[in-house]
């Protein structure tokens, strides 16, 4: 797994873990939910398959490669924690292996003026130790993207 520093501030909000999303956020892979009945891959992981409505899933790792489908450069400080972070980008990335899967993320090594729709990207992970919410401490892996040559 390629590692990267977290793009958002250290204490910035984390995903609450659920039985469905635990694989995606704690594996350090693009581990996607796959329906055991029909094989459909869906993201975000859900409680039932949106193709056949089955309730049982396993998880399949996609290669860490994607394409920028859209992006925005955020300038407005929507929370005081972001005062030093703006301007930053938010992107929608589709996966090479599963083009219908779109993941919201950040492209961490591209300047605002250089962002492009169609830009190829590879995934890295920021490791964040999550504790203090009553649950057992656990490491969360936040997927983050870098420009691919």
């Amino acid at each position: 797994m390629a590692r990267s520093e977290r793009y958002m501030p250290d204490q910035w909000i984390l995903p609450a873990l659920t039985p469905e999303n635990r694989a995606f956020f704690t594996s350090g892979e693009l581990r996607l939910q796959r329906c055991r009945a029909c094989g459909a891959v869906q993201h975000p992981p859900g409680e039932l398959c949106n193709v056949c409505q089955a309730l049982e899933f396993d998880y399949v790792a996609a290669r860490p490669e994607g394409v920028v489908e859209s992006f925005t450069i955020v300038h407005h400080v929507t929370n005081p924690m972001l005062e030093q972070r703006v301007p930053y980008n938010v992107a929608i990335i589709s996966l090479r292996d599963y083009p219908h899967v779109r993941i919201v993320g950040n492209v961490i090594d591209v300047a605002p003026g250089q962002m492009r729709i169609g830009m190829p990207v590879t995934c890295t992970w920021a490791e964040v130790r999550r504790e203090g919410d009553g649950a057992d401490p656990i490491t969360i892996y936040i997927p983050q993207w870098k420009h691919a040559d």
Binding site: Y7, M8, W12, P15, T18, N21, P44, V74, T78, V104
Partner: peptide, 11 residues
């Protein structure tokens, strides 16, 4: 849904 957006600054 916020679990897939807010951690990336899209809140």
């Amino acid at each position: 849904e916020e679990a897939y957006r807010a951690p990336f600054g899209a809140g």
